[in-house]
Design a protein around this nucleic acid. Structure first.
Length: 636
RNA sequence: GCCGGCGUGGCGCAGCCCGGUAGCGCAACCGACUUGUAAUCGGUAGGUCGUCGGUUCGAAUCCGACCGCCGGCUCCA
């Protein structure tokens, strides 16, 4: 098969360009094109391989076409919508005459393999919009796209491109691989529903997801990553490690923390609270409900009521459960006349909020209806704003660094269309965030219109141990609430001024953050966060008493020891300890009682023999106090 | 909220298509063993098969509604 076919171009002489057989597409003067595209003689032509992002994209999009073709073969009368490449593969949306089930995926794949075997060339045709509508007239979704295409957006003038292979054709910008035989390895993954154009008011289409890679090894590697993610799933680990649950009687999105989860969470909370006290924050406590007037003033009833639980009544009127903590902190600020000398005032709370999230949006501890935010509101003068934001950025880097999260991906989100803030103030807020970002030296990108209704924000996303990005920290700059609540401070000039408020949550909610941590660590917490520090496995019944004494001695040294008192073999007890991700396991038998030293088994299964009690305590205390992310080896 | 899938003892699953009132493994409990670093042996108990309604002589199984969970869409900490 020739990789560069000569075709006539409207202007310019056809020039044959021979690219290597492994080429998937070409780049001509920087633009990605089909291999059949023949550039004018002085153009710069580069080979695009399947191993590079652009090549993989072409491969995946071409696979999507073949899948759509297979689906149309198997479901005559199928209407197809859009089928782009995605992060790890591709998908295509269909409107089908009958239902599809997961079991059908195999049939579709089989048909796709036939199309691959037929090695049909992908042929690009440039048509006028009228011609294209004629060609794809029985495809209402395609027709809609064509009719709505902006002039000049897709191709010069009135021309759009259609790609055809075999007897199947689709409106498409391309480029594609030269022929269906050039696809890599693929697998259909799952079925889902998706609204046409993402609009709830439009028809729900069937979306079929697939993954595609240049080589089998890459596909295997991807499937392995999926397995790894499943292994780390916090919902599974939360149950297995007995950390938390969501009994049906509570309602969706509401969770209880079990004793082991409670210890983990206590450590997390202590760390966060103490660090905030160190950094000049004040700790406050506020109730869970408040009268409707508070939410009217704050603007939440007007802008956020969709996410608020319905009110409850008593003889004094309506009360709402809080979806945010900010108005309460504002009220604390307003209990007395504040001077510029009082600012900045940093009010901090592990505040539990309730949001009536849509049912389908709930997901384990990651998306919940009741959760506790590490929420702080910093009230300051406009002059202090940039430095305060900068300090929050620094605190963020420090706190997340403690858990092994580094190199944040940062986005600055500007104000959305619907807002309670006037333009001028919004631009001041955006400017302050931008200045702080610039001063911090952190890399960031801008997301237009993605901010909260009361102001622009900066979000920090962090990569976990298997490379997934999680949005954790949010810092929002608010000129709105100070106005609405008429917050004031008396300045050096003895005049009243309006302060600015920063909203910030560094971990987000403790629930969400815990879920991320569990997946990040695969349930094997650093020692300081572990429900147990040591797991004691008595060899026989007669050693249980000694193990209990030992546990008490550990407790006196501020260490948590669990004694496995079950009537099982040592092997079984060690296995249980490993399954519960116990950081250190000590087998307690005659030898230990006699010698007063222990063999310390860590999570990897490695043992250090003959460690004395005091030495062990010292080492564990140190590992805890430094919040070490690595298990230590003893006796080295 | 929408589309699809699923819901069987604490957990993981089989049985459902082709109706005849439940089965396995782990965990729990009891007993024996008293064990040396990833599963000792034997026994016992535990389930209105998510809920409600319908079809049927008879429903875990077929139908409907609701509840919940899962995967997406939308939204988002």
């Amino acid at each position: 098969m020739s990789d560069a076919r000569e075709i006539d171009l409207p202007d310019g002489e056809p020039v044959g360009v021979v690219l290597p057989p492994e080429a998937i597409a070409a780049r001509v003067d920087g633009a990605l094109v089909d291999l059949s595209f023949v550039p004018v003689s002085d153009a710069k032509v580069e080979t695009v391989l399947a191993s590079e992002p652009d090549g993989l994209h072409v491969l995946r999009h071409s696979t999507a076409h073949v899948m759509a073709q297979a689906v149309c073969d198997l479901w005559p009368g199928a209407k197809y919508a859009i089928g782009p490449a995605s992060e790890d593969g591709f998908y295509y949306d269909f409107d089908l005459p009958s239902t599809v089930s997961e079991g059908d995926l195999e049939r579709i794949e089989a048909r796709m393999r036939e199309i691959v075997a037929a090695d049909q060339p992908f042929v690009r045709e440039d048509l006028t919009r009228t011609e294209a509508i004629e060609r794809l007239g029985d495809q209402p979704y395609k027709r809609e796209i064509i009719e709505q295409l902006e002039e000049g957006e897709v191709a010069a003038g009135d021309v759009v491109s259609v790609y055809r292979n075999g007897d199947w054709a689709d409106l498409c910008l391309g480029p594609h691989v030269a022929s269906t035989g050039r696809l890599g390895t693929f697998r259909l993954m799952k079925l889902a529903g998706a609204y046409w154009r993402g609009d709830e008011a439009r028809p729900m289409l069937r979306r079929i997801y697939g993954t595609a890679w240049a080589t089998q090894a890459e596909l295997d590697d991807y499937l392995h990553r999926l397995e790894e993610a499943e292994r780390r799933d916090h919902r599974k680990l939360g149950r297995e490690l007995d950390l938390f649950s969501s009994p049906d009687e509570l309602g969706p999105g509401l969770w209880v923390w079990h004793p082991r989860g409670g210890l983990f969470r206590k450590e997390l909370e202590d760390y966060v609270r103490n660090l905030h006290l160190d950094r000049g924050y004040d700790l406050v406590v506020t109730p869970h409900i408040a009268r409707s007037v508070l939410w009217e003033t704050s603007g939440h009833l007007a802008k956020f009521s969709e996410n608020m639980y319905p009110p409850m009544q008593d003889e004094q009127g309506d009360y709402y459960v809080k979806p945010m903590n900010c108005p309460f902190h504002v009220l604390i600020y307003k209990t007395s006349t504040r001077s510029y000398r009082d600012l900045p005032m940093r009010l901090s709370e592990l505040g539990t909020v309730y949001r009536h999230e849509r049912l389908g949006a709930l997901h384990g501890l990651l998306r919940i209806r009741g959760g506790t935010q590490d929420d702080s509101h910093i009230v300051c003068t406009p002059d202090q704003l940039v430095d305060e934001i900068l300090a929050v950025f620094e605190l963020t880097v420090e706190i997340l660094g403690t858990f092994g999260f580094t190199d944040p991906v940062i986005t600055l989100s500007t104000l959305p269309g619907q807002t309670i803030v006037d333009e001028e103030k919004a631009s001041k807020a955006t400017e302050a965030l931008t200045n702080a970002l610039e001063k911090s030296g952190l890399q960031y990108e801008v997301a237009e219109g993605e901010g909260a209704f009361y102001g622009p924000k900066v979000d920090f996303h962090f990569k976990d141990a298997i490379g997934r990005l999680w949005q954790l920290t949010t810092v929002q700059c608010d000129f709105g609430l100070p106005e609405r609540f008429e917050m004031e401070y008396v300045g050096e000039d003895n005049q009243r001024h309006r302060p600015v408020m920063i909203h910030r949550a560094i971990l987000g909610t403790l629930e969400r953050f815990s879920a991320v941590l569990i997946e990040h660590y695969a349930g094997a917490f650093p020692l300081w966060l572990s429900p147990e520090h040591v797991w004691l496995a008595p060899v026989a019944d007669r050693h249980v008493e000694h193990a209990r004494d030992l546990s008490a001695r550990f407790r006196a040294a501020d260490l948590r020891a669990h004694v496995d008192e079950s009537a099982e073999t040592v092997g079984k007890k060690v296995r249980a300890a490993q399954l519960m991700k116990a950081p250190y396991t000590l087998v307690i038998g005659d030898k230990e009682i006699e010698a007063g030293t222990f063999n310390v088994r860590d999570r990897s299964g490695a043992e250090t023999k003959g460690v004395g009690f005091d030495e062990l305590v010292r080492a564990l205390r140190e590992e805890i106090e430094t919040r070490s992310l690595e298990q230590r080896r003893f006796g080295d």
